[in-house]
Nucleic acid binder design. Structure first.
Lengths: 243, 243
DNA sequence: CAGTGGTCTAGACCACGAA
DNA sequence: TCGTGGTCTAGACCACTGT
């Protein structure tokens, strides 16, 4: 016989996926559910934890457990490095940008292939759909390569930033490494997700025709809200084998 | 004052990241740790759960909690659609393949843009590094497009399958959608990871020059063991804007 | 304030792994 | 068999939300 909390989770999951519990609806209180299933609240919370991990249920302290709306997925389009305007643009889409002049250190220097201490421009961009953070971008360039207006908040780049697009001139090559990992503490707080939940992380390196790195970006998206899409055409396959 | 299990997790995390606890080393038993921190085992397990989520600690029932080795990351190279031979090939790399003749149904038909009931060839490939599953691929083609030898296990394709490469002739375009999501139950059991932990999922669609879909593949990798890398060159940027 | 979830305890029993 | 982790209970107290 399987553990009790599995069966409870299964039962609640069926009620949600079958539509018997509607998106947005509040579940009975944990105490009530615990009584219904004849278990303690500890066990019931164990079952609910599984549903939260599956993004079926959202817990709000002091209010209750709610069936989540199917999240509106947005697309990150590789190569260009931007959010798909068709899905990302909406009346409620906002963006906050913070720029800073920093010095290369640690993995950042490695990423940009510059010595520690090199002057960099950093842009932190957070897109929000209403109150829900949808993605966090931290974009780095050498300070003397930064397009005019980047560091002083010129509005010319707002559109690009809102879509996490590559800044400045179109680079010769873009290399994007994608992985799923747990959010770092700063990502978790910026994206308003629980610590150590999964994010889709993109590390983007743009290079000009001379091989010089013109931009490095670290993008993080909550795991269930974005797909990253990459399209490859036959003609460039040969080039991709070269390191 | 932060919750007690946070502080315990922080303390253990420090001991691991600082090297005071070595990779592979067994932690004291949960009962011993609970006594050391003067909490119950329930609370201590709560703290350990965070470290498991961060892949710092691996729990083995009946044996104990172990500091994980930094996983040897493997690369999935986009465009070609294969595992990087430099990192994926090793003396212990094995592959198991199961082929089946199935009929299109549900999302599979949508993926391949064929009607429900169309005859398909399915290949399930699981790569293992020693005893550890590293990736699961389920590759689908129309049965009459499948290269000879695929369905009867001809060894000509073993090499390609071991690297999750695209089968058959080189397609004109490859579209890969990457997302982080929780593992489905079948993925979790095949990859030997706990239910509902995160995976990096790649959905790969290969199209020939006439626009016909020649292969669809669903790839799943445990979240912390693989990076997917995509390289885009300037000359094809224009094409990528077309839907 | 009442109702909700968040944390924690002390103790019991079960399931797995190695000797 | 023994030591390990896995599950569960009954009950306490704290923290957040809305009235």
């Amino acid at each position: 016989m399987p553990p009790c909390h599995y069966e409870i989770a299964d039962d609640l999951r069926r009620q949600i996926t079958s539509g018997r519990l509607q998106p947005g609806e509040r579940l009975p209180s944990e105490a009530a559910l615990a009584e219904r299933y004849a278990v303690t609240t500890v066990t019931l919370r164990h079952a609910l934890a599984a549903l939260q991990g599956e993004r079926l249920v959202e817990k709000i302290h002091g209010k209750g457990n709610f069936v989540r709306h199917a999240p509106r997925k947005i697309l990150y389009v590789g190569g260009w490095g931007m959010l798909d305007p068709l899905t990302a643009t909406g009346p409620a889409l906002r963006i906050t940008v913070r720029s800073a002049a920093i010095l290369a250190h640690g993995s950042l220097g490695v990423l940009l292939k510059v010595p520690t201490g090199s002057p960099l421009a950093e842009l932190s961009c957070l897109t929000l759909d209403g109150e829900t953070p949808q993605g966090l971008a931290r974009i780095y360039t050498l300070r003397d390569l930064a397009p005019a207006g980047v560091l002083d908040g010129g509005s010319a780049h707002q559109e690009a930033l809102a879509r996490f697009a590559v800044l400045g001139v179109l680079p010769a090559t873009i290399r994007e490494a994608v992985c799923a990992r747990s959010a770092t503490p700063d990502e978790a707080s910026a994206l308003k997700i629980p610590a150590a939940t999964a994010v889709l992380a993109v590390t983007r390196i743009a290079t000009d025709s001379t091989g010089r790195i013109t931009e490095a970006a670290r993008l993080a998206f909550p795991a269930d809200r974005v797909d990253a899409v990459f399209t490859t055409h036959h003609v460039i396959d040969e080039r991709q084998t070269s390191p």
